[in-house]
């Protein structure tokens, strides 16, 4: 188990403040966030290449904050290609194996085993300069695994791999994790995070703003940043009026149809594709009907997205046929209907 307790890092002008997290044995922990959030610096600190200015790192209860990188049992796969260019694939892996043992038979066995696990047996005598991005990543992964790390750190491992290679590598990483390898994986890509993680931490501007199981963080985000990262554009903080209604920005009153939420502040996600729209006024008795103006219309892979203003800005993914039929265009006024049952409501403590 790896624990980071109140880690502060100063790297040049960049600061990471008060990061605490726990990675249990067997976890696939993804640290997700935009470029420049401090993810790489965090990984390098865990790996021992950068020293924290404050805080402790515990591995199975032992403080490893001051232990040199190579003695931590934490293997780091860098984002840049770090295959040693003057050594063949075989010698790259041998480099790691020979550090731990001199027993030739054992080295040979472990070499074959790790090569088989990563499917790189056919590459053993090639030089790194002749390999593709995906192959290089496997070689470096094999070399790192050969040093038998308790925790495997991956810094954007799929960034230099083509689309087909990405899927293969994802399967490989998932299988490694299933066999018990604890992994901490850093990425800026939401799809990558959700397809691999068992636990997630969201990082932005040097802070870990949210963490937990994949389901909790990605499906019930409590931070606007997390929601946006997950693709929820209609994320609002709302005041709980405790009468089955909430107020957004003191402007828009929305009926949520339940008073079960106790906290004063709630987060509200309105799924873009579940908002009904109409050119004609919707009957008054229906709840959550609003008049809105269209401020923009853009194309995406599912058709169209409307940007509407009904007191606050809202994204709507309408049925495109409807859009064509109704001849909705910019500057039109439309009517919206939001069923309380489609709302995703998260309590903010």
């Amino acid at each position: 188990m790896l624990e980071l307790k109140d880690i502060h890092i100063q790297a040049g002008d960049f600061k990471i403040s008060s990061v605490s997290l726990t990675v249990e044995k067997g976890d696939y922990f993804v640290v997700a966030g935009p470029s420049g959030a401090g993810k790489t610096i965090l990984l390098e600190t865990i790996a021992g290449l950068i020293g924290p200015s404050k805080g402790t790192i515990l591995l199975n209860g032992r403080d490893i904050s001051r232990i040199p990188s190579g003695k931590r049992s934490i293997g780091l796969v860098f984002q840049d290609n770090t295959a040693f260019p003057h050594l063949s694939v075989r010698k790259n892996i041998l480099f790691a194996l020979r550090i731990n043992t001199l027993d030739k038979q054992r080295i040979e066995n472990e070499l074959q085993q790790v090569a088989d696990n990563l499917g790189i047996r056919h590459l053993m005598h090639r030089k790194p300069s002749t390999l593709s991005g995906g192959e290089l990543q496997r070689v470096v992964l094999a070399r790192t695994l050969a040093s038998k790390p308790q925790i495997l750190l991956l810094d954007e491992p799929l960034s230099s791999v083509d689309a087909a290679g990405k899927d293969q590598l994802k399967t490989l990483l998932r299988n490694l994790n299933r066999k018990g390898q604890t992994i901490i994986h850093v990425t800026h890509d939401f799809d990558e995070a959700i397809s691999l993680a068992t636990k997630v931490g969201i990082m932005n501007s040097g802070k870990l703003i949210e963490q937990g199981t994949t389901d909790k963080v990605f499906h019930h985000p409590t931070h606007e940043f997390t929601a946006r990262f997950c693709g929820y554009r209609n994320f609002f903080y709302a005041e709980n009026l405790h009468i089955g209604q909430v107020m957004i920005d003191n402007k828009v009153l929305i009926t949520i149809g339940t008073s079960k939420f106790k906290s004063e502040k709630l987060a509200l996600i309105i799924p873009e594709e579940k908002i009904e729209i109409s050119e004609l006024p919707i009957e008054n008795k229906a709840v959550n009907t609003f008049k809105a103006s269209i401020t923009d219309i853009t194309h995406n892979r599912n058709g169209f997205v409307l940007e509407a203003d009904f007191g606050v800005k809202l994204y709507i993914q309408p049925n495109s046929e409807l859009l064509l039929k109704n001849q909705i265009s910019l500057k039109n006024e439309i009517w919206l209907k939001i069923e309380p049952s489609v709302l995703k409501i998260i309590e903010i403590n």
Binding site: S69, G70, F78, F84, P85, F95, N100, V140, S147
Partner: peptide, 12 residues
Amino acid sequence: RLEQAAQNLGAS
């Protein structure tokens, strides 16, 4: 990075 990678693998 190459030196750091070697260091991380446990090389002196």
